[in-house]
């Protein structure tokens, strides 16, 4: 077990290194130059550009730039092109904003998907099954921002309540309870919107998995023992159907960074996705590269976590 973990971690680290090199290549081969950060800005003179280029080692050969980036990242003094502030604290700040949104979204997705999917599988072909199928496909097929805008339109017109941002403007001095409720409200709408597609996809998957399992011989055996239907479904079938979902916990992690760009943009939520988006707009290479690196690291870590979790829950899997 530990040997497996160690070997996998080493392999993953190697992959991570490769990924970071490729991301550098992608950025350096692209025609846009970071010195064009703000080409329209009349204050940006050739001297300034030269100064920026020098301070960020932009005239060094590619491998040196890569090493500089690596060293700065490790020692935590990587600085943003945009304002010269260190990258990591900025990412940390935004992470604190993203985390509640991400956690709530995940919570909603997982608690809503399982009952929906199981119910549909057990009543296969019923009106409930067919209508949830259609609703799920519709949610998968709708552009996320389209639905969000429709909801915003609806909420604003019907309830005259603001939904954008992290809190309502002008409530800074309201009592704590009001501020807290306001915060929850502002968190709820984006989470629900971001969760909808997830619920649709995951509940379909739960349904398929459940259908796969419910026809297995061991479910028939459980019935032949005289167990009641709840016990058969939840004690025997669901246990097996759940196995693949354990691995999905791992794959959720990278969603923390890249999964939320659209929704953070719509709801003006200053999280990691929005940070990345702004960095891309500003060609803030250190920021882009670092976020990209972190997303890849999270993905790799997620896969490792999945493998280990799978071995924990499925007695047939041995980590070799």
């Amino acid at each position: 077990m530990w040997r497996f973990v160690l070997r996998t971690v080493l392999q993953r680290l190697l992959l991570l290194l490769l990924i970071s090199i490729i991301s550098h290549l992608v950025i350096h081969l692209a025609p846009g130059q970071p010195s064009e950060v703000d080409p329209m800005n009349p204050m940006m003179k050739a001297v300034d550009i030269a100064r920026i280029r020098a301070s960020f080692h932009l005239d060094d050969p590619f491998y040196l730039q890569y090493l500089h980036w690596m060293r700065d990242l490790v020692f935590g003094d990587l600085k943003s092109f945009r304002d010269g502030l260190p990258v990591l604290p900025k990412i940390w700040d935004r992470f604190l904003n993203s985390a509640p949104l991400f956690l709530l979204t995940t919570l909603i997705v997982w608690t809503a998907s399982f009952p929906t999917g199981i119910h549909a599988a057990l009543r296969r072909g019923s009106l409930y099954d067919r209508s949830t199928t259609l609703v799920a496909y519709t949610l998968i097929s709708v552009p996320g921002f389209f639905l969000s805008y429709l909801l915003i339109l609806f909420v604003v017109r019907t309830f005259h309540l603001p939904v954008i941002g992290q809190h309502t403007f002008g409530t800074e001095h309201a009592p704590l309870i009001v501020r807290f409720m306001d915060r929850i409200w502002h968190l709820a709408i984006p989470s629900i919107m971001a969760a909808l597609t997830g619920i649709a996809v995951l509940s379909r998957y739960v349904r398929a998995q459940m259908l796969e399992v419910i026809d297995q011989d061991y479910v028939r055996t459980a019935r032949a023992k005289g167990l009641d239907e709840d016990h058969v479904v939840y004690g025997h079938a669901l246990r097996n159907a759940l196995l693949p979902f354990v691995t999905m916990f791992g794959f959720l992690l990278p969603g923390l960074i890249s999964g939320s760009v659209i929704f953070e943009q719509i709801f003006a939520w200053p999280g990691l996705g929005l940070l990345g988006y702004e960095a891309i707009l500003a060609r803030d290479f250190p920021m882009i590269l670092t976020l990209n690196f972190m997303a890849a690291a999270l993905t790799l870590f997620g896969i490792l976590l999945s493998d280990i979790l799978y071995a924990v829950v499925d007695p047939r899997i041995r980590l070799e």
Binding site: Y218, R220, A222, H236, R239, D314
Partner: peptide, 8 residues
């Protein structure tokens, strides 16, 4: 082979 529940 398949009549016993693999996770119990």
């Amino acid at each position: 082979m398949t009549s016993l529940n693999p996770v119990l």
